[in-house]
């Protein structure tokens, strides 16, 4: 393993009951790249993300983060600097957009229960300091006009953007995006693609992306893993993936 690999997935096997969802899948993610995972429905893409974010515990294999931490034990993903968004949006619906982002600052804040309740001195300064960090993200994602709106009341595209902001508020080294553009129109997709590229280039965050829009994936991804029925069938740069006969058979279809 080279040192520039931020994430090393080795022979990860995951099964529920008798169903094998991931079968000895292995790939690596280099620091600073956009890595896409594609494949037909039920291929195990989201399960792979769940393994990386420590939500599922694979039965076999290793997930090495930063070359030393094995994520297969689960639970410490946030502390290590892994943030994610969800396929069906996992926001806190009754909090404002601002508070959703502030909630993601949780692990960066030090105030204890008593300090929170008294809101005096340190706690007050800390809240203001983290507010400044969050406001910078709000500016970046262009959601200033809805910062005090309850996210449950927001339209879908904006909620996706707030969720991206919440993941960024964790200041992750690795960002996992589960279908960030699903259900969006062309314009919203372009906006989201721009944000993803900006996060990548300006903030230097490594991104693992699951997405079905092939045009976009081929455009923004540096390298692509293709899964089919829980096994890896291809891995490489977009141009190679586009030509791969196995990928064309399983997913892309003849027309492309």
């Amino acid at each position: 393993m080279t040192s520039e690999n931020i994430l090393q997935v080795e022979d990860v096997t995951l099964s529920f009951g008798g169903t094998t969802v991931l079968d000895r899948v292995g790939f690596d993610v280099r620091a600073g790249e956009i890595r896409a995972i594609i494949g037909p429905n039920g291929a195990g893409k989201t399960s792979m993300l769940n393994c990386i974010s420590g939500f599922y515990r694979p039965q076999g294999g290793r997930l090495l983060f930063g070359g030393e931490h094995d994520l297969a034990g689960g639970k410490r993903a946030a502390q290590l600097g892994i943030a994610r968004t969800f396929q069906n949006i996992g926001l806190y619906n009754y909090l404002s957009a601002l508070d959703n982002l502030m909630a993601a600052r949780h692990i960066h804040m030090r105030q204890n229960m008593l300090a929170s309740a008294l809101f005096w001195g340190y706690a007050r300064k800390e809240e203001a300091r983290h507010r400044a960090v969050v406001e910078e993200l709000i500016d970046f994602l262009e959601i200033a006009h809805i910062r005090k709106t309850m996210v449950g009341a927001l339209p879908y595209g904006l909620r996706k953007r707030v969720e991206l902001g919440r993941a960024l508020a964790l200041e992750p080294k690795l960002l996992l995006l589960d279908e960030p553009m699903a259900g969006m129109n062309a314009e919203e997709k372009e906006d989201m693609a721009r944000f993803i590229l900006d996060i990548h280039t300006r903030r230097g965050v490594t991104i693992v992306l699951v997405e079905h829009d092939m045009t976009l994936v081929m455009d923004i991804a540096d390298r692509i893993v293709v899964l089919d029925f829980g096994t890896k069938i291809a891995d490489g740069v977009p141009d190679a993936i586009r030509q791969d006969p196995e990928v064309i058979r399983a997913y892309l279809g003849q027309a492309s």
């Binding site: 420590g54 943030a83 909630a103 949780h106 809101f119 809240e127």
Partner: peptide, 26 residues
């Protein structure tokens, strides 16, 4: 004070989406 600081946000995040709260380090 609790409802507008770290503690209150952690509470509400558990109520609204405990899965996301856990993945975000609560």
């Amino acid at each position: 004070n609790i409802s507008r600081t770290r503690l209150g946000r952690a509470f509400v995040s558990i109520r609204d989406n405990d899965l996301a709260a856990e993945l975000l380090g609560v």
